[in-house]
């Protein structure tokens, strides 16, 4: 089954400096000057089947995070169509949905609700989430005392326990330590063995190569190469970087 289908997807952003003031809006309407825009993504076609592990690589500003936001449905494309089937758990940013004044345990509840758990699911998995995060001394401390690695542990633990059909990760594993990264990789491989789907963004071509069989290389908002991870990563490494924006 195809879980993610993108057809000639484009996303345009406007560059607007003072735009969000009432006076500027009115003045802008009167002057009718051209607004400056750029395409963060253009003509992207992508089909991801159930059970695939796809890595997305590319330089800063290539459109990787925009692509994930569109797949997850946080933002809508300017043109083209997006279809996403199955339950997705997305970790687009470290600690999004976490509050610094709440304890780790309280944040698990909040974050789980936002990701799509209901009360019964949280209760059934709470112990397991806490255990996987592996920070027993800090779990009842406020989050502002956490290191970024500890936040990554908590965030990843909540997302993986949701038991999604698609796990979407944006550059969140890189802050964990070796031991935890290994734990995550093991868990992701387990997850993959169950025929689940992974969509993974990283600057680290190495991480994409080891976790994914397929890689998509984005450059300036377009798909430059889509194929077996080893080949795409090798080509990406040899190419001179073209940074967008």
């Amino acid at each position: 089954m195809t879980l993610i289908e993108l057809e000639s997807v484009g996303k345009r952003y406007f560059l607007h400096h003072k735009r969000q003031l009432l006076a500027e809006r009115v003045a802008g309407k009167l002057r009718r000057r051209e607004r400056v825009s750029f395409w963060a993504l253009r003509d992207v076609n992508l089909r991801i089947e159930a059970g695939e592990a796809v890595g997305i690589i590319g330089a800063n500003g290539a459109g990787k995070s925009t692509l994930l936001s569109i797949v997850v449905g946080v933002t809508s494309p300017t043109e083209g169509t997006v279809i996403q089937r199955g339950r997705a758990a997305a970790l687009l940013e470290l600690g999004s949905g976490f509050h610094p004044d709440l304890t780790g345990r309280e944040n698990i509840h909040l974050n789980a609700a936002l990701l799509g758990y209901n009360r019964a699911m949280v209760q059934a998995r709470l112990d397991s989430i806490v255990e996987f995060a592996g920070i027993p001394d800090f779990i009842d401390e406020p989050l502002r005392t956490y290191s970024s690695g500890m936040m990554a542990r908590l965030g990843f633990s909540v997302a993986i326990h949701l038991d999604p059909d698609i796990l979407v990760l944006d550059e969140v594993l890189s802050v964990g330590d070796q031991e935890f990264q290994k734990k995550c990789v093991d868990r992701i491989e387990d997850f993959r063995r169950q025929g689940k789907t992974l969509l993974f963004v990283s600057h680290s071509a190495g991480a994409v190569e080891s976790l994914c069989r397929r890689a998509v290389w984005l450059e300036l908002g377009r798909v430059r190469r889509d194929g077996p991870a080893a080949e795409v990563v090798a080509e990406y490494r040899n190419a001179p970087a073209r940074v967008g924006v």
Binding site: Q84, H99, L114
Partner: peptide, 23 residues
């Protein structure tokens, strides 16, 4: 649509609890 699987009452409860505790 994955949003439909969300329990929005549970989210509402958690957001209110968050505001209350934080305050």
């Amino acid at each position: 649509m994955s949003t439909t699987s969300h329990d929005h009452l549970y989210i509402l409860y958690n957001l209110i609890a968050k505001d209350f505790k934080v305050r």
